[in-house]
Design a protein around this nucleic acid. Structure first.
Length: 496
DNA sequence: TGTGGTTTCC
């Protein structure tokens, strides 16, 4: 247009800026912005809004912010773009605050406002703020907007309130995203079966599954060790050529390694031409999970040779492998390497390190690491320490760890039992009884041992002490064998 | 002839 000598006007730029926002690299953004500055088109609210949006999407929230605060007048779109700018770039509280501020400035939030701010509540898991937004959206009927109800479902899921997420889902208009949001939300234990039910439901009400639904369903199967259903979903994904999608392929590695089919997972890993960090992480975690620790650590080292940067998950994978293999010095080296790479350790990293040191009997060092953490240790960290105390018979430290665990996870039976058994082993019966009494007073039930098999689309569980399960077990076995024969018949690669 | 929106891998 410029080459043809046609002068763009303020109507041109919203289109150009939208395109620049989606373009790779910063060149198009800088050039377009520069032209606008040189030609005094800055004061047009449409143009300025598009600029804020462009910078929000490119991750420069201060650039978007500069433009916003220099604008002469704002409309509701300006506020919404600015809320998105904060919400998508790590300034969640600012985004939430801006909804109040826009009202102070006399602007009314609309459905887009709520759609933009709800993911901010979700990311910081602020149920209070999320509920407040929910209530406001009801007052102006925004909750009837499918974008808003989907964002609400996601917010409740991310705050751990599956009951409220399900409520919103039940009373709202539902589309593909509604199903996907709930499937992905449920695909973590212990709601994986619900996730798979929803995956079947969506198809029966005529809503097509897409890559996101497949990823959620595969992840649910992995967590359930539901190999047969996982294979079926693998087949469904092949039918739509989704299986070459990177996220799907990575989920397939996760599925097969979690189900113990390491070779199958490796086959998928090898076939991915554009492997990303998550592909490598999934494979390293898979080897580690199945006890192939040398393979896990070798793959970790190989990843670097391939020119890929480690992320925090890579380190969780390799540290847990070192811990299980008893490679203390090597684990410490990797931990230091992670710090040098400016990756801030999370609870899980500390839990791995405490486990590493503790298993090796370096109890003082493990306790010192917990003490030196820059934030309060969570139940994974204290649990790792308690586990190590159990192995090495360190009752004093076990008491300390258990004290924290009883506060952090008061309903978790395992910790009470572990400590009580430790007392009993050394004949400190009074203290063992005290722990049991504490457990009883808190109405903590001991979970019975449980084992299960999958038959068709159902899981059948067997509990310790259930009695007369002999015939039922045989029945399950027959069905299981039949099911295996069927699933191997339609797979295109050899079974491992 | 113009601006803003929800869900995904480890």
């Amino acid at each position: 247009m410029l080459r043809a000598g046609v002068r763009p006007d303020d109507r041109t730029f919203p289109f150009a800026l939208t395109a620049a926002a989606a373009a790779a690299g910063d060149d198009a953004r800088k050039e377009t912005h520069g032209y606008i500055i040189r030609n005094y088109l800055y004061s047009d609210v449409f143009v300025a809004n598009s600029l804020v949006d462009m910078y929000a999407k490119s991750g420069c929230w201060n650039k978007g912010s500069d433009i916003f605060y220099r604008m002469d007048n704002w409309n509701v779109v300006s506020w919404n773009a600015m809320i998105a700018n904060f919400a998508q770039n790590g300034a969640e509280l600012e985004a939430i605050r801006l909804v109040k501020e826009m009202q102070n400035c006399g602007e009314f939030p609309n459905s887009v406002t709520y759609t933009n701010v709800l993911p901010a509540c979700a990311r910081i898991a602020s149920l209070v703020k999320g509920k407040e937004i929910h209530a406001r959206s009801i007052r102006v009927c925004s909750n009837c907007d499918v974008f808003v109800s989907n964002a609400l479902i996601d917010m409740y899921v991310k705050c751990g309130r599956f009951d409220l997420a399900q409520n919103v889902f039940n009373v709202s208009e539902r589309d593909q995203v509604s199903y996907n949001t709930l499937i992905v939300g449920y695909s973590e234990n212990p709601l994986c079966s619900e996730a798979l039910d929803l995956f079947l439901d969506m198809r029966s009400v005529g809503i097509e599954y897409d890559v996101v639904s497949i990823v959620g369903a595969l992840s649910a199967c992995g967590n359930l060790s539901a190999l047969k259903q996982g294979k079926e979903i693998h087949c469904l994904s092949m039918r739509k050529l989704f299986d070459t999608h990177l996220f799907v392929a990575n989920s397939l590695i996760d599925l097969y390694t979690k189900c113990g089919r390491i070779a199958l997972g490796k086959k998928i890993f090898d076939r991915i031409s554009n492997k990303d960090v998550a592909s490598w992480n999934a494979m390293i975690l898979g080897y580690g999970m199945q006890g192939e620790l040398e393979a896990a650590i070798n793959l970790f080292d190989l990843m670097k040779d391939e020119g890929l940067e480690y992320d925090h998950v890579s380190y969780i994978a390799v540290l847990s492998a070192c811990s299980h293999a008893g490679l203390v010095e090597r684990g410490k080296r990797y931990f230091d390497q992670m710090l040098a790479q400016n990756i801030r350790p999370t609870q899980m990293h500390y839990a791995c390190m405490v486990d590493l040191l503790g298993r090796a009997g370096l109890m003082t060092e493990a306790a010192e690491l917990v003490r030196s953490m820059p934030f309060e240790a969570d139940s994974n960290v204290w649990g790792a320490l308690l586990g190590a105390c159990r192995i090495h018979g360190n009752i004093e430290l076990a008491q300390l760890a258990a004290e924290h665990l009883f506060k952090l996870k008061p309903g978790h039976c395992g910790y009470y039992i572990l400590l009580s058994n430790m007392y009993a082993e050394v004949g400190r019966w009074n203290e063992a009884d005290k722990v049991r009494a504490l457990m009883k007073s808190r109405k903590v039930k001991k979970n019975p041992g449980c084992s299960w098999v999958q038959i068709g689309n159902k899981l059948r569980a067997f509990l310790v002490g259930e009695g007369s399960q002999g015939s039922e077990l045989e029945l399950c076995y027959d069905e299981l064998v039949k099911g295996e024969r069927m699933s191997s018949a339609y797979l295109s690669w050899p079974q491992t």
